[in-house]
């Protein structure tokens, strides 16, 4: 039984809990499947209908890496010893882009899928989740490009790279949290999509994506690593090329940030959710 009043769905009595739990599990399965369906469709429309989809996933990070490494190695003489700068940069960009693209996709997802919202109630959080998750496919393509570069430049990698998976999980949590927050705000303030480009640009320069963290003073280093994306990207690169974590303590802070931002984003989203139907 669904009970709706001005305060939203009611809290059930303890007696119903067992029945509720089994129904909950059933609907959770349905919503997970909806996430999957939406994510698969998202990826399909991107790649089926245009070869340009591939452009975004492969050519984009490739060109960026080539241009940046030209500017930074030939003009600025940046160095990221012992790893060639192109590989160093491409690694940072690959992981950063997963985050940034997930956030951007999630931000526009509610306003872009207004037609899905008017049918029947389902937890709206499904929509930004699916959009963000769908970007993992782009990431896999980019990862392939990265692997080619690593092999071509004979860069040594370490078996610790498998520990990147839990780091990626944290990164996804962070992307979802930011995505939930911005997608809900974007319903109310439509220029959020413009703003997010700016925010992400600043955020990227404040994360060690394009420069090695070792080149800056200790104070600045610790500021940059207090930024969760900074610590995560540093960890991902360490696990790949160094074999151990050089900045382990900051990772705990980052994990706490990820958890906090995920919950805060989810909470804000849930709070704003009832207004969607009225504003859209």
């Amino acid at each position: 039984m669904t009970s709706i009043d001005a305060r939203g769905p009611r809290v059930p009595s303890a007696r119903d809990l067992v029945r509720m739990a089994s129904r909950r599990w059933h609907s959770l399965r349905i919503w997970l499947e909806l996430i999957r369906n939406l994510a698969v469709r998202d990826v399909e429309t991107r790649y089926k209908h245009s070869l340009l989809g591939l452009y975004w996933a492969i050519i984009n990070p490739l060109i960026t890496a080539v241009i940046f490494s030209f500017v930074f190695t030939v003009i600025f003489h940046a160095s990221s010893k012992p790893i060639p700068y192109v590989v160093f940069l491409l690694t940072g960009l690959t992981f950063w882009n997963l985050f940034a693209n997930s956030v951007v996709s999630a931000t526009g997802s509610i306003t872009g899928n207004a037609a899905l919202l008017s049918k029947l109630y389902f937890p709206r959080v499904v929509i930004p989740t699916a959009s963000a998750i769908a970007r993992v496919i782009d990431f896999l393509f980019a990862l392939f490009v990265l692997a080619v570069f690593i092999v071509a430049y004979h860069v040594r990698i370490y078996p610790s790279l498998f520990w990147i998976l839990p780091i990626l999980a944290l990164q996804t949590l962070l992307a979802l949290g930011v995505g939930y927050l911005l997608s809900a705000l974007n319903v109310l303030y439509r220029d959020m999509t413009q703003l997010i480009g700016l925010i992400l640009m600043i955020w990227m320069y404040l994360s060690p994506v394009m420069y090695p963290i070792g080149n800056v003073s200790n104070t600045i280093q610790s500021i940059l690593l207090m930024n969760p994306m900074g610590a995560l990207i540093q960890a991902e690169r360490d696990l790949l090329f160094t074999g151990y974590l050089t900045q382990a303590p900051y990772l705990w802070a980052a994990a706490a940030w990820c958890g906090f931002i995920f919950l805060a984003g989810l909470y804000t989203f849930k709070r704003l959710e009832p207004t969607f139907a009225e504003v859209l």
Partner: peptide
Amino acid sequence: TRTMLPTSGRVAVRGKVSSLI
């Protein structure tokens, strides 16, 4: 269909809803 909440009052829907809105 629960896509909107009432300002006041109560709605109880028992059963699986399908809609064509």
